[in-house]
Each structure stands twice: as structure tokens, then as C-alpha cells.
């Protein structure tokens, strides 16, 4: 049995789990390549036009391996934290793939509720049953996959020469080098330190969002917004670069929420879409870094930008 795993969307975060699980079941695993032009082109060709770029790219990944596997893992991830959800496009992902790409093999359809072990096992049992009828083996594979996932970490934390920025955005945008036009390397080459939301603990972000009138609906909204506020408050960053995919509804909420709460703290929002011309991004990043450098050199310009977080009343 050959199991196909597209290297798109939350693969970057949960690949250890899925790969361990299926290899423990004794199946052969086919993972698509890193995103490249062919995959992007295929994704744009197959996917419905309204979807965001990461969903399109996911279609490309699925299409690139569909003929080489017997069972395609299309994770319908509904939720990864209690009472919080993931982008609604994940709910319909299997249907989108089956509808848009011709001749797809069998696809995993069950929803995934990752925060709840029992619920999560349901998915594993249904997907695992496609490989083996031995339920003890599935249970064992589930346990070792969970263990392996616990040990794996994603995120970027790198010290810089003078400046550090928070690279914010959905993980599938930050960790897809092709999609984000290699921004991590661009910042590295300029000697800029990078930190992502993974390095702020869940409890800290939960503390932070308690100050909001309404509890965040999406996990990434809580994580990114909370982390931005915590990092800023602890003076660990000099600016925020937000990578947003064009047409992402959740980003539009998070960006405005962050903007509202950080006052005059510098934030650069980069909208990503299909274009491959890098001049637009280079100009914005370069100008942003120039601005940060000059701000640091003239610190008395703005006494303490960090104090503007949640200054005064907070009607959000």
C-alpha cells in the first residue's frame, strides 16, 4: 500500500506524526517534492480560483503524487485546540481535491480533531484501516506517532547582528520557501534575527488574549496575535513582518487586531500571490530594514514604543 502525503498546508507542522504513523503500519510513503514551479502551476490550474495561494499549492502537491500512490492523505483538520478552529477551507479540502483533480485515488475523508486523543484516534483508525485490519497495530502506531510528534519542533529562532524581527503568518506560508520567495534567507543575508510564534508558550498567548473582549475563534489568530504582543512587551523584537496570502480571511482579522494593539510599533505586511517577480518584496523588506535601523539609531524619537501595547483602554 503506497500512502501519498502532499507537502502542503500543515504538513510543515505535522509531517512527523503522519509519516511515523504510516511507516509503523508498514506502508510505503510517497511525499511530494518541495514546492516548485511545476507544483505551483498545477495547483493554479486545478484549484478553484477563489482559494488562497497555500490551498492552490496544496492542490499542486496532491496532483503531483496522485498517480504514484493508492491512498491520498488529505487531512481535514477541523481543530487542533479545544474550542478553537482552523481555517474553514480545511473543512472542505477532501471534497475540493476530489472535485477539482481528475483521477484521484482513494482519499482520507474523516475529520481530524487533534486536541482530543479519542477523536484523533478515530481518524487514525479509519485511515489505518485502509492499510491493515489489525487494530492493535494501528493503536501501537498511533502511540509511537504521537510520541515522535511531541519531540518534533517547528519554528525559526535566530539571533541577528543588531535587529530582530518577528516573522508572523500561517506556518504554511512561513515554511514554504518557494511561496514566500525565500524571505528567511533574505533576512538572514542582511544579518536580521528572526523569531516565529512557536517560541512563545501557549499559556502566555492565552493570557494575552484574555484582554480581548471576544475570545479568538481560530487557533492561529490566538497564537500569532498573542505571540506578537508577548514578544513586543518583552522587547525581544524591533519589528514585525507579516506574511499574508492574498484572499486569506483569517489574516485580515489578525493583521487589523495586531495593528490596533501595537500603536506605532513597526509592522510590514507582505501580501503573497502567484507572482514570481521579487522586486516588489525586495523593495519593501529593504525599506523596512532601513527604517528599523534608523529608528534604533535615533531612539529618542519615540520614547518607548513597547509601552504603546494596550495602552489605556482597550475596546477591541
Amino acid at each position: 500500500m503506497r500512502i501519498g502525503i502532499p507537502k502542503g498546508l500543515l504538513y510543515c507542522r505535522y509531517h512527523t506524526f503522519f509519516e511515523t504513523f504510516f511507516s509503523k503500519l508498514g506502508s510505503e510513503i510517497i511525499v511530494s517534492e518541495q514546492t516548485n514551479k511545476d507544483i505551483m502551476d498545477m495547483g493554479v490550474e486545478f484549484c478553484v480560483d477563489e482559494a488562497c495561494l497555500p490551498v492552490k499549492v496544496f492542490h499542486g502537491h496532491a496532483a503531483s503524487i496522485k498517480d504514484r500512490c493508492d491512498y491520498l492523505i488529505i487531512p481535514r483538520i477541523m481543530s487542533i485546540c479545544k474550542k478553537e478552529y482552523i481555517c474553514p477551507k480545511f473543512c472542505g479540502l477532501p471534497e475540493m481535491i476530489i472535485h477539482s483533480i481528475p483521477h484521484v485515488p482513494k482519499v482520507s475523508m474523516e475529520p481530524i480533531y487533534m486536541q482530543n486523543e479519542k477523536e484523533f484516534f478515530k481518524w487514525c483508525f479509519s485511515a489505518g484501516s485502509a492499510v491493515t485490519k489489525n487494530s492493535a497495530k494501528i493503536k501501537k502506531a498511533f502511540i509511537s506517532a504521537k510520541k515522535a510528534q511531541k519531540k518534533s519542533r517547528t519554528g525559526i529562532i535566530e539571533p541577528g547582528q543588531k535587529l530582530t524581527v518577528m516573522l508572523a503568518g500561517h506556518p504554511y506560508v512561513i515554511f514554504d520557501e518557494y511561496l514566500n520567495m525565500g524571505i528567511v534567507n533574505k533576512l538572514r543575508a542582511k544579518g536580521i534575527g528572526i523569531i516565529t510564534e512557536e517560541f512563545v508558550s501557549d499559556s502566555e498567548t492565552c493570557e494575552e488574549v484574555k484582554k480581548l473582549v471576544k475570545k479568538p475563534f481560530w487557533t492561529f489568530q490566538r497564537r500569532i496575535f498573542g505571540a506578537a504582543c508577548v514578544l513586543l512587551r518583552h522587547k525581544r523584537i524591533d519589528g514585525i513582518i507579516y506574511l499574508s496570502s492574498f484572499a486569506c480571511g483569517i489574516d485580515s482579522v489578525i493583521i487589523d487586531l495586531i495593528r490596533y494593539c501595537i500603536g506605532h510599533f513597526p509592522m510590514l505586511v507582505i501580501k503573497l500571490d502567484e507572482h514570481t517577480g521579487e522586486a516588489g518584496m525586495d523593495t519593501r523588506v529593504e525599506a523596512f530594514i532601513d527604517m528599523l535601523e534608523r529608528r534604533v539609531l535615533n531612539e529618542n524619537y519615540n520614547p518607548s514604543p513597547w509601552e504603546c501595547v494596550f495602552s489605556g483602554q482597550n475596546p477591541v
Partner: peptide
């Protein structure tokens, strides 16, 4: 092809934006 706004305070760029899409 593009339009920008640059905010300057005390002779330093403190914020800027460019047209997006």
C-alpha cells in the same frame, strides 16, 4: 506602477506603506 506613503517624524522614517495588489 506604485504608490507609497512615507511617514516621517523628526527627520526619520517611522512608517511607510505601498500599494498591494
Amino acid at each position: 506602477q506604485d504608490s507609497k506613503i512615507i511617514i516621517i517624524r523628526n527627520g526619520i522614517v517611522t512608517d511607510f506603506a505601498m500599494n498591494t495588489v
